[in-house]
Nucleic acid binder design. Structure first.
Lengths: 359, 359
DNA sequence: CATTTTTGTTGGATCGATTCAAATTTTCGC
DNA sequence: GCGAAAATTTGAATCGATCCAACAAAAATG
């Protein structure tokens, strides 16, 4: 009976406590938020009344409106929510973000959605002080949506020409050059590139026009880095097949099929992500090709999985955790300025690269 | 100059728009939340004014207070935030939770904290409609803290005697029996148990008193399951060493050292988590012991990593994703009732178990 | 004991929206 | 052109707290 009534009764508010305890709501509020300025006797009485009435404590919803600050940052992506827990790159990034948030006591709200409309709504209605955007597929839409909200935000991967957007990324050109030089120095001369997208929703071999019209400058820069360095070694880069994938299993395998169906298959693969590189290793092994004896592969990102697989992946490591930490701090101590940071990368040589086969 | 002033000006409110457009707040509100009931002409005018004044859309903070519902669930743990992205079990669970949230458009807020005080505060102030609690170390404190908040919550792992708490877990006794029977049927007679905690903050061999006074009944049930089944095979369970770990590297290794330092080392290890089982495989391999030829191991949980390691782990698989989905739905369509669900488990035989060595 | 200082308490204003009954305007049938 | 019905718009009330200027009471000072 009691529980039935209880279920219907609306929750107890601070004002109810104040009335019951015979103090003003101002004092009641102080009991909870600044207990030290309330006389001990009054404080105890109010607390006792609250306890007895089953008060849950000041409702954050009310406090929030007054305070104006949520003390949480939103991390958004166009991928489904599970992306945050599945993707190795995202996970390391989240570790960095978590660290910065843990340190200041800020919360993390994951924002995503099954479709465009819902994504827009979720971004509009997320209770956060700012956003960190995982700009993968559809990054530009994500930025547009977030801009509407008029809250501070940082784009991860500065693959945007748009200089008015705060972003943190890595030196893609330098990283790509490191990868290319490493392979060239091992004697490789026949290459293929597993590329990230130059624009949304496309896979297949990328023509020079596509590259020139790249929406994602990060992809463009990596390719430019590869080509610049290979050209220095006398490689004719116009002959290098560049296959655009969606950075997942299916399109990457399709790309490998297409690349190895051509005359003169490559002895070395430049992959723009570790994800693709790891898929490629799998694919090659299944095809009976030895890595690195038959084909060498260099990845990009430096996710932990790369060290564990067999053969361990040679890659261009980004300081992923540090990027995450900085992104979070950018939001947490936001000062209104647009910041664009470029982090250095590092070549990590492991077992997936070796000398080019003679002939 | 303009941007300087803009920076200081407080954000535009709906009321500002209403005034500027010459309509009431009610109408202005409708333009954004129920556009179809506003006359087209008025709607466009208000929208134009909003656009021109740089209005960011209705502030969720305001809406929230009125609506009362946040449309987000909090997932809390006593571990640091990075736990959600690192721990394999947590990750699979989060995938299930994400799925259910994605389906209804609900958000996820991760709640955790470096220390007790902050954890309490973060739980008190999390903007959520309910909580899912990862009850690992310190689960009972977490439940107490959350109860204060008087919001619906579900405890994962029903390791609580407390029947007033909603919880989802697995049939620990049945699972443990499956594991024990599998090993016994392979001829094993000398066992050791790598146990989860019976109460907070303790590691080392567990005495019968400790087991009897278990705070975590999940741990107790698993042990009971092991023992019941082994007893059926004539094993003297009083001689089985049970080592309590914190389910991480250090204490698990310490446990293995202690177990293998005894006379008559075990030929089979029953691990209460895959995490410990995987650490054990590593430890044994490093020690020159072959798995499963010298020592067989059965884990518990069924995390994906178990299938990938070498040798692949035989384990008791929980329907982790499904548990996550159900937990999320329990909060999302909460009806005020306390629910306790027990899910079935499944023995997955892989390569880490084999026949007992003769003699 | 009168006066200042310190300490505590009060209640109105505010945060930014949504809701709904009542008032107003439009539309429509005849 | 009139009255009824339908479509819009209004404005006060509400959500649940915090903040702060003004006031009251108690303590310290001369």
């Amino acid at each position: 009976m009691a529980s039935l009534l209880e279920g219907q009764a609306r929750p107890i508010r601070l004002a109810d406590i104040a009335r019951a305890a015979g103090v003003s709501h101002g004092t009641a509020s102080n009991v909870f938020s600044r207990p030290e300025i309330v006389r001990a006797e009054v404080r105890e009485r109010v607390k006792a009344v609250a306890e007895q009435m089953g008060y849950a404590g000041p409702d954050p919803k009310g406090r929030l409106l007054r305070a104006g600050k949520v003390n949480a940052i939103g991390v958004a992506t166009t991928e489904p929510l599970s992306y945050f827990f599945d993707d190795p790159f995202a996970r390391v990034m989240m570790a960095g973000i978590s660290e910065a948030c843990d340190a200041t006591g800020a919360g993390i709200a994951l924002v995503s959605a099954a479709n465009q409309e819902k994504l827009a709504w979720n971004i509009q209605s997320a209770l956060v002080d700012g956003f960190i955007l995982f700009c993968i597929e559809g990054g530009s839409r994500l930025v547009d949506l977030t801009r509407e909200r008029k809250l501070p935000f940082v784009a991860l991967e500065l693959g945007f020409q748009d200089e008015t957007v705060s972003a943190i990324g890595v030196d893609n050109v330098a990283g790509a050059r490191l990868a290319a030089r490493h392979l060239a120095e091992l004697g490789h001369r026949r290459f293929a590139v597993l590329s990230l997208a130059f624009a949304d929703n496309r896979t297949g071999f990328a023509t020079p026009e596509i590259v020139r019209g790249a929406l994602y400058t990060g992809t463009r820069d990596r390719l430019a880095g590869y080509f610049e360095e290979l050209a220095r070694f006398g490689v004719d880069t116009t002959k290098i097949p560049v296959y655009e994938t969606e950075n997942e299993e299916k399109s990457t395998r399709a790309g490998l099929e297409a690349i190895f169906a051509r005359d003169e298959p490559p002895t070395a693969i430049l992959a723009m992500s570790d994800r693709m590189a790891l898929i490629a290793i799998d694919w090659l092994k299944a095809r009976g090709l030895k890595v690195p004896q038959d084909v060498s592969i260099v990845g990009f990102d430096g996710v932990p999985d790369g060290a564990l697989c067999s053969p361990a992946l040679t890659t261009i490591a980004q300081p992923i955790t540090e990027i995450g930490r900085r992104a979070a701090r950018m939001i947490l101590d936001h000062d209104g300025a647009v910041r664009r940071e470029t982090m250095g990368v590092e070549l990590i040589v492991r077992a997936s690269t070796g000398p080019a086969r003679k002939g």
